[in-house]
Nucleic acid binder design. Sequence first.
DNA 1: TGTTTGTTAGTGAACGTTAACTAATTACAG
DNA 2: CTGTAATTAGTTAACGTTCACTAACAAACA
Lengths: 196, 196
Amino acid sequence: MARISTEERQVLIIDEAIKIIHEMGYQSFSIRELSTRVGISEPAIYRHFLNKEDIVLGILGRFNEFDVKLFNEVKLNEKPVEKIQCFVQYHFNFLEKNPGMTSIVFAEEIFNQSSLIREKMLSIMEKRKRILKDIIDEAKLGNQVIDLETDEILMVILGIIRLAVLEWRMSGFAFSLSKRGTKTVDTIGKLLLVKK
Amino acid sequence: MARISTEERQVLIIDEAIKIIHEMGYQSFSIRELSTRVGISEPAIYRHFLNKEDIVLGILGRFNEFDVKLFNEVKLNEKPVEKIQCFVQYHFNFLEKNPGMTSIVFAEEIFNQSSLIREKMLSIMEKRKRILKDIIDEAKLGNQVIDLETDEILMVILGIIRLAVLEWRMSGFAFSLSKRGTKTVDTIGKLLLVKK
DNA sequence: TGTTTGTTAGTGAACGTTAACTAATTACAG
DNA sequence: CTGTAATTAGTTAACGTTCACTAACAAACA
C-alpha cells in the first residue's frame, strides 16, 4: 500500500519472514503469508526479491551481522579464558533477545532448499567455529585449558550451547536463556579451565 | 501391485518414508512420492494408514524399538561408568547403521506437523534423557563422576553426542561415526570420570 | 516523462484426500 | 472338498486447495 524504498521494504520483509518461520515453521512460510503480513500484494514481494531463495539468503545475511558483533565483543576481553566466557554468554544473550533466529538455525529443511543456501549456512557455521577455535588455541598456549585436543574442547562447548538452546526452544522459551548461559559458563569453567 | 498383508505393507511404507525424508528432506515426503517408491497407488497408502500424520507416528514408533534395545544393552554392564560408555557408543553404532534416523531427529519441521506428533517426540526424548540420568545418578553415588549437577553432566554428554551426529550429517556421512564415538567416549572419560 | 513501487487477475503444478470400482484372498455352509 | 459370500488390498479418476511466480496495468515520485 504505502510506497517506500526497496531498501526499507527489504528490511521489513526479512523481519516478517523470520517471524513467520519462528511462529509457524518454515512450512508455513509462503509468499502469500509473507505479503499479507507485510501489508502488500504477493507480486509486490517480487519487486524487492528475485525469488523465495533470495529472501532466505537475506535472512541468512542477518547471521553475518551477528558474527561481526560477536567478534567485536569477544575482542574487548584480554585473557583467552574471558574470551571463551564472553563467546558463550554473548550467544545466549543475543538469542534471548532474538528467539526467532534459533528457529532458523534449527530448521534444517531451510538448508535443503538449494545448494546456494546450504553453502552459505555452512560457511556461517564454519566461520563461527573458527572464531572459537582460535581462542581455544590461544588459551592452550598459555596452559589455561586442560590438555585435550582443540577439536574435542570445541565440541564440548558448541555442543552444550546448542543443546541448551534446543531445550530452551522445546520448553517454549519458558526459562531465561541468559541465566542458563551463566550456568553453562560455570560448567565449562569447571570442566575445561585449569584451576590456579 | 502385488497383494500383501497390511502388517507387511506398513513396514515397507515406513521403511520407504524414512528413506525419502533422509534422501530428499521432509518437504519432499509426499504421498505421491511415497506410493511411487513403494510401488502402489496413492489411495492404496490409505488402506494401511489413516492419514499422513499416522505414517509419521509410525516412523516415531521405530524410536521406541531403539530405546528398548538401548536399555537392554546398557543393562548388560555392571559398573555405572561402563553403562555411560555403552550408552554413548551404542548411540553412535546404531545411527551409523541407520543414518536415516538422524534425518528424523534433526527435522524439527516434523514435530510441528501436529500436537500428537510433537508430544510423542517429546516423550521419546524425555525417556532417553531419563535412562542416562539414572545412570549418572548411580555413578555419582559411587563417586565415579566429578562433582557437578547431574543435569549439567547430562547436558555435556547429550550435547556432544548431538553435535557429533550433526557434524557427521553435515559432512555427508563422510567419516565413521562409530570411531568418532570412541573418541567421544574417551573425551567424556577425561572430562567427567574421577581418575583412580 | 520515465522509473519505481504498487495493484488485479491468472498461470501450471503439486498437495492430501476421497469416491467408485475391481481383483485377490479368506471364511464358512453344504 | 467345493461354491459362494464377505472382506481386504489394489486400481483410475477426480476433488478442492495451495503453491511460487508472471503478465499487464496504474499510480506515485524524481
